[in-house]
Amino acid sequence: MSRRVEDLEREALQELSRASSERESLREARNRYLGRKGEVAELLKGLGSLPPEERKKAGEAVNNLKDRLEEAFDGALSAFDESEKRERLEKERVDITLPGRSIRPGKLHPVTRITDEIEDIFTGLGFDIAEGPEVELDYYNFEALNFPKDHPARDMQDTFFISDEVVLRTHTSPVQIRVMEKGRPPLRVIAPGTVYRRDSDLTHSPMFHQIEGFMVDRDISFANLKAVLTLFLERLFGGTAVRFRPSFFPFVEPGAEVDIRCVICGGNGCRVCKGSGWLEILGAGMIHPNVFRKVGYDPGEYSGFAFGLGVERVAMLKFGIGDLRLLFENDMRFLEQF
């Protein structure tokens, strides 16, 4: 019996190696040996004729043979499948260096991107967003903001007039007045928007964008102003040094100009910072008591701070744009970079 097992194994393996180049003959060979009516099955059937004491041992041998042959044939078959699959996949190869296909999204204007970024920082600090008209009454643009008529402070902002009493707003500060007139403290608001000044050269555009912000409550201090603006500038510019200098805007007092360490030269002095190592970035201050009086708040009860910054300037610094005019030329080669 064991000889037959050995013979059969040798015979089967020889056949396997002969058939291994063709899947069909391999499958046929497997069937011939391992099929339901194959040689191995025949062998098993023949076990019944053996004496019982040999039967067990012979049975084991045949079953082991069956396992070995199955392993050999299946291995050969699956190797065959593998190589066939490899071949097929090889044929399906694409040139992955060809450009991808998609509908390309458009780009948002750099001014929008910066405005969004700033809005997100302030809404994260609990500020609301307000809007106001771009064509404003003199009252909101100047008078209520403590710029009296016939006052030289008005020269700080060259104004476009629609009529004697109607102007294109020169800053987003009128939104302060409109929001305070409508609401009551506590107020924490930012107001982004378009503003206009009658000035046009390399560094001035007759139309540009500002973001105004203010906070009014009981006991708001200059120290609070410093903290909020420092936090904001650190987030916007990534942990930069900040300094505060006294300055003058009629609607705040004490008034401040806020500088950041020059992002171009790191403070060593360069053309952008005119050698000072600092960049002017924000105007700010404590809301003037006269402004509170105009909106009917008691300056003895409430205090607050306000600030404003130019969006274009931030965009130019953050994106490294050297020429302000690019922002309004709407050249796709420029816009598509953002």
């Binding site: 390309r104 999204p105 458009g106 780009k107 204007h109 929008t112 294109l168 206009y196 709407n330 598509e336």
Partner: peptide
């Protein structure tokens, strides 16, 4: 912008 449009900004006047 998702539909492929790039944003422009023009002067109001």
């Amino acid at each position: 912008s998702g539909a492929g449009f790039t944003e422009v900004m023009n002067y109001s006047f």
